[in-house]
Amino acid sequence: MIESWVINDDSPVVVSSETVLGALRSRIDSGQRETWLTSSSGRSLAFVTNTERAMVVLLEEEGDPGEHAVDPGAQGSSDGFVLSNGQDDEYSNEDTVPIHEAFRLVKQIVKTGSWPKDARWVVDR
């Protein structure tokens, strides 16, 4: 069964792999840098960006530490990851990916439910 995904704080309209990037870009343009999507099977997908890099986290259920995309060998850290509660986080660049890669990952997960075969990610469980 293919999952359907909705953006948590938007209307209950399902986003597809063809529409999810437009929705993310629109949210970023309006200052919303944190987006949570929920699937019809109860999984969650988090996307938090500073507009240059993004953290992408896939959770199997509530309370799951999940798994997140990584950029092995990336140096330093980046700040400006503003959460919906106003918290401004800084993350190691190894634990985030360039935004164009984050968009590719989100699109693939929404389309297939899985990371792309060539994606780099770690399990935090």
Rank of each mutant, 00 (worst) to 15 (best):
F103C: 09
L105C: 09
D95N: 14
F81I: 07
V15Q: 09
S77G: 06
A54T: 06
V82E: 09
E3Q: 08
W115E: 11
V123H: 15
D79N: 13
S30M: 10
G113C: 12
L37G: 01
W5V: 01
T96V: 11
G31Y: 11
D9I: 09
P72S: 08
V57T: 15
G86Y: 12
S77D: 11
T96A: 14
S16M: 01
V70H: 00
G22I: 02
T38A: 13
S84R: 15
D95Y: 03
R27Y: 05
E34H: 08
V57S: 07
V97I: 12
H100G: 05
A102V: 05
L37P: 05
V48D: 04
D118E: 13
V57R: 14
V123G: 10
V70A: 02
T35Y: 00
A23N: 06
W36V: 07
L58N: 04
R104F: 05
G80A: 14
M1A: 08
D9K: 11
A46I: 03
G76I: 05
R125K: 14
D71Y: 02
G63K: 10
S30H: 08
D118C: 05
P65T: 02
D89M: 12
L24P: 04
V122Y: 03
D9H: 15
D71F: 03
Q108F: 06
R125W: 06
V48R: 02
N85A: 10
N50R: 01
W5Q: 00
V122Q: 13
E3P: 01
F81E: 01
E101R: 14
S16V: 03
F103N: 06
A102W: 05
G76K: 04
G73N: 13
G66A: 13
D64Q: 04
L21T: 13
R104T: 14
N50H: 01
E90A: 09
G80V: 01
S114D: 13
E60Q: 14
D71G: 00
K117A: 15
E34R: 03
N85C: 13
V123N: 15
V13K: 12
E61T: 14
Q32R: 14
D9W: 11
A23E: 09
E34K: 10
S44D: 06
V56N: 03
R125C: 07
D10W: 08
V6K: 13
A54G: 08
S92D: 11
L24N: 06
D88I: 09
R25K: 15
L59D: 05
S78N: 07
E62V: 14
W121F: 15
G31W: 10
G80F: 01
I99M: 04
M55H: 10
D29W: 11
L45K: 04
E90T: 15
W115I: 11
S44A: 07
A46S: 14
S11D: 12
E3V: 00
I7M: 04
E61V: 03
E60W: 00
D79M: 00
F103S: 10
W5Y: 12
D79Y: 04
D95P: 02
T96S: 15
T112V: 04
V82Q: 12
V122M: 13
S4I: 01
E18N: 12
